[in-house]
Design a protein around this nucleic acid. Structure first.
Lengths: 419, 419
DNA sequence: TAAGTTTGTGCGAGGTACAAACTAACTGCT
DNA sequence: AGCAGTTAGTTTGTACCTCGCACAAACTTA
């Protein structure tokens, strides 16, 4: 038998540009699941189930995962011997009769996670326990326009100061960085305000110096991962993290994994259009979400409405002033949260994730801001029956969420839940 | 050792509504991969690689998938014995020397796929070969407000007429339906213009009558799947299908699988907002994408601009008139395609899928409309270096794309690429 | 004290992928 | 013509994983 050289491909017509792209990415990414990978995957899933659900007995885990009890024993036993997990006291089972279950959980003395937050001009490093507890914070500054060697020296020194306080070698080091990051290759592409970082292969550098697994991702995605492991996104399979401040950004957790997009470029929500031919944006286009829901808009409106000190207006301040009875603050807060809501509405109409965690300025507005946004979203979205939309804030300050997120990056890559 | 009863959960604050949701979906969806599942998964992936890349030898497949040649032999040999695959003539290898490779591909006489397109008042059924070829089309009409039994009778009769023309039992039956579909449970939730279908457990019914695997999904998602298996999305891992017409909708293929969202509710793009406080939409909100990029807008504008027969204006007609030299048609076409582009821009900013397949009215405009939309998108999107955006049309008429999509649903579920 | 229930652990069975070694088939050089 | 070199596909044995069964341990209830 003889086949035609090509299968009957294009039933549709293509524009010339599309053909090149399609030819480029054709095929290559077919991967089979190897036997050994399977074990690693299942081990990771058991650990995640344990992490998400708290201490659980082997039998509970087996029921949760729908597998045989013996399988769970086979998976956890080596981990207990490795002192990653510990067996708790036999707690009287809640059902009547039977041998009491021995809950398993992470050893409090298990290795910690190294975390780095890299912002223009400043480095923060710390250790994060599996409970989310932050220890050994070290801060340093660097010359944003200086010498690469100098930056690496500062980075190494800072990280060494933190890591030396660990009782035992951490699982790995996670880096959350501002700017454009190529997380696949572990390099920093560009950071607007810190040219010294441009093109830096940070993962390779740190891996060599510290002989530990190193992962890097950009700031919004770290926030998402922080939420997933240590924050309101814990145990959830679908949610989005939304960052508002000087700019807007987002990241998604879809079907149990972080969405990274092609070349790690998903989530640039700030420049989605909510007002065709609207106000001019920094990016050169018109009507971007960022033009109506970020801090510059808020300051401009505050100035227009003759607020005192309009340059220092924030969501937190508006909430406070509204609580103190200011009608003007309440109205502006309402408009601000409504504008923020539009971006979330578009996200909801597109992906239906149903759950959103807010960071940055609006998170400073606490539950009141979240509730206002939720109400606006409910009004503006086409609801399906039984659908409930959740808006949560994660307002832990001082970049702690981002540091936890950096640590979470290590967990995510360590447990490799993706096949 | 004693654990606290709960892990240290909420580091963030929650609005009351969110807590309920989180409690509801907590944990349950942890699943391990069983050994036997692994085999099925890998078999599916080999088949898909073969399908996407055309005839390939065992050795090629092994290289493509990064596995041992013996593994491929183990997988394909039973399929050859089952006559699903056939071995082609030994083609002289392109490299010098060595035993020539024997390409494998699907047996032209392999079973076909049953496909059903269900629209208000009409049923279309057909057989689809693995090449995408459509055979044995049967059409029927039904009373949209009639009796359920009567509908089932018509459906059974139509499908029987089609299936009886198959040489051998098809792999399964795929149903693409208008309206809201619960694809998990295989029931039709509601179809606006056909109340008789409300709540119908169609999958269960057809499964029982025909003793074949049956899958159902809604129309836009079927278009997507049709593109993936038989159209311009073939072999791609990330793309979106966008439908424009009386309404707007979309569906996404993300990281090699169909995105279904929670309760199958993703892709309701028509009601994402592109014009805050814009024109009133059918849904009761303002400024939805649908108000500026669907046919009702086009007709309204055509009437305003005194086009002849404004009620019958379509993208195809605009393209034709513009080609014939009409400035007015060219200008309206430009505005129309720009408005369509805004929705794609927002999708691109959100998910960065980079590849879009158009269906419905704009697809009627062919490559010219696609190219116009592509240009608008390029102008309106914040581009990353090296990023190329592809806009393709799939304008096969008479619902053939949807029928192929229905067939594709069977393939997708048959090959079960998801873990 | 006996019966019943639940937890956790050996052990063998079945299935899967991989590595090594082999045969088959073709090219190129002498 | 003959031999070395190369590639394709197969056979055989090994390692790994999950499952089902049987069983001991530990607790409750009557």
């Amino acid at each position: 038998m003889k086949f035609e050289s090509q299968p009957s491909y294009s039933l549709g017509q293509r524009t010339p540009a599309s053909r090149e792209v399609a030819a480029g990415e054709n095929g290559g990414n077919v991967t089979l699941v190897s036997q050994s990978a399977l074990g690693a995957i299942n081990r990771g899933r058991v650990l995640q189930a344990l992490y998400d659900n708290g201490p659980k007995s082997r039998a509970d885990l087996a029921r949760l995962a729908g597998v045989n009890r013996t399988t769970i024993t086979g998976i956890v036993q080596p981990m207990i011997e490795d002192q990653l997990l510990v067996e708790g006291d036999a707690s009287p089972s809640d059902v009547k009769g039977g041998k009491p279950a021995r809950p398993l959980y992470f050893n409090p003395d298990a290795p910690m996670l190294g975390a780095v937050l890299l912002l223009p001009g400043t480095i923060q490093t710390c250790l994060v326990a599996l409970t989310g507890e932050i220890k050994a914070v070290t801060k340093a500054e660097f010359d944003t326009h200086g010498d690469t060697e100098a930056f690496i020296a500062v980075m190494t020194e800072t990280l060494t100061a933190t890591l030396s306080q660990a009782q035992q070698a951490p699982f790995g080091i996670g880096v959350a960085s501002a700017g454009m990051i190529d997380s696949d290759n572990g390099t920093i592409l560009t950071v607007n305000l810190a040219p010294v970082l441009t093109g830096l292969p940070l993962v390779a550098i740190l891996q060599e110096r510290f002989s530990l697994p190193v992962v890097i991702d950009h700031h919004p995605r770290a926030l998402l991962v922080g939420d997933r492991w240590f924050g309101p996104g814990r145990g959830q399979q679908n949610f989005a993290a939304v960052y508002t401040g000087e700019v807007l950004g987002g990241a998604f957790f879809i079907d149990g994994k972080v969405y990274r997009g092609l070349a790690g470029s998903g989530g640039e929500l700030g420049h989605s259009v909510v007002q065709i031919d609207g106000a001019l944006c920094n990016c050169g286009k018109h009507g971007c979400w960022e033009t109506v829901a970020a801090l510059p808009w808020l300051r401009k409106e505050a100035a227009r409405l003759s607020f005192p000190h309009p340059k220092s207006v924030t969501c937190a301040r508006l909430v406070k002033e509204a609580d103190e009875g200011s009608k003007a603050a309440e109205e502006l807060l309402d408009r601000y949260t409504r504008n923020v809501a539009f971006g979330i509405v578009n996200l909801q109409q597109t992906l239906s994730l149903n759950s959103y965690v807010l960071h940055g300025d609006v998170a400073g507005g606490g539950m009141k801001a979240a509730e206002l946004i939720r109400q606006h979203v409910e009004q503006l979205v086409v609801k399906r029956p039984g659908q409930e939309i959740s808006i949560t804030v994660n307002g832990i300050g001082e970049g702690h969420t981002a540091l936890r997120g950096a640590a979470g990056l290590v967990l995510s890559s360590h447990l490799k839940l993706v096949i």
